Simulated assay, not measured.
Amino acid sequence: MDFNLTQEQQQFAEAIRRWAEKDYGFEQRKHIISSAEGVSKKAWSELAELGATALPIPEDQGGFNGSAVDMMVVMQELGRSLVIEPYFATMVAAECLKQSKAHFDVLEQVAAGEKQLAVALDEKQSRYDLFDITTTATANQDGFVINGTKTVVLHGAQADMLIVSARSSGNQRDKSGIHLFLVDAKSAGVHRTDYRTIDGYRAADIRFDKVQVAPINLLGDENKGWDLLDATGDYGVSLLCSEAIGLMEAINAATLDYLKTRQQFGVPIGKFQVLQHRMADMFMEMEQARSMATLAAVKVSSPNTEERRRTLSAAKARIGQAARYIGQQAVQLHGGMGVTNELPVAHMFKRLTTIELSFGDTDHHLARFVAQPDFKVSA
């Protein structure tokens, strides 16, 4: 299989990298983080002009119908530059709309950069089990009424519309009786509490208090939302894996540069063989993770559900291990400066740590991988 990027993918990556180097440097990022909004409307508009928001959207809705591999290229560049705009949250929600084949008008607005979306899927008791849902959806003559609370909704307070999982029947951890809804974030009864996460992103706890939604806002088949929810979660995992590769490349480059310039005993510390060995190990971890991220991007759209789950969990687990190792080594090689906010490496380490904990940590995905049918332990 040819793993080389196409000319178009390379050009797209280079365009985003040039934009980030020119208009989204480390100082600009720190200014955005400290602002009241925590995001930049200017940066979002520029991403839309570059075509990033339109990339995964179908052509009929004004997009380029990009694949997960195309998205891998974008997420790597955004990760490399520590971009904190609500791109990931919007693209995951857009994928959910694509798979449900509904609300094409919203997809058109996403492609044009006119709307930002978020996925409200997690609850305080659910950990990483997206099917563990206490939020309820009660049918009435006008559609459904949603009641419940979602936690740590990435860019939930910045989103114009939300994808919300809710339960109409069954027990708390049943995979049946689950619905997904598209909800206007400004609907009556939607209460959002915005806050900053450790990596500089924004998240929100969102309470739904008797929120009325129309029947048209139900995504997919009634009571069969789990398959759509599971596929959406795996797509999110694929994007996170790709972002992590860009971060690993950046943190390795920053660490190597530091070893070449920091001197001890009159020579750069990069001359010490033991530190060279560490950098070699970090490089090998990154390349192994890159292979798994590529495989995840290829398999996330597989019609074989078991193969998709198995591959995505394997990738997330392996990349989680690599992210932790590379991040910890980078901080140690930088010494005390590695944990100060003055250096990009500290921010990269925080983001890698958050990625490892998002959409299922390493332990969760190892358990999910083992639980898939046909798993066998070699003798």
Rank of each mutant, 00 (worst) to 15 (best):
Q7V: 13
E8D: 09
Q9H: 02
Q10D: 07
F12E: 06
E21T: 04
R29F: 09
R29L: 14
R29I: 12
K30Q: 15
S35E: 15
A43W: 04
A54M: 10
D60I: 08
S67I: 13
S67V: 11
A68Y: 14
M91N: 03
A94G: 08
F104T: 06
E108I: 03
A112H: 08
A118K: 01
Y128V: 03
D129V: 00
T151Q: 14
T151A: 10
V152S: 10
L154V: 10
H155K: 06
G156P: 01
M161P: 04
S165L: 11
K175V: 04
F181G: 01
R192K: 11
D199Y: 10
D199I: 06
G200I: 03
G200A: 07
Y201F: 11
I206L: 05
Q212A: 10
N217C: 14
L218N: 03
K224E: 12
G225R: 01
G225Q: 07
L229D: 01
D234K: 01
G236S: 05
C241Q: 02
L247N: 00
L247K: 00
A254W: 07
K260D: 15
V274C: 08
L295A: 12
A297F: 13
E306R: 00
T311A: 02
S313M: 00
S313L: 01
I319K: 03
Q321K: 02
Q329Y: 06
H334G: 05
M337H: 11
T340N: 12
R351F: 11
T354R: 09
S358W: 04
H365D: 13
A367H: 12
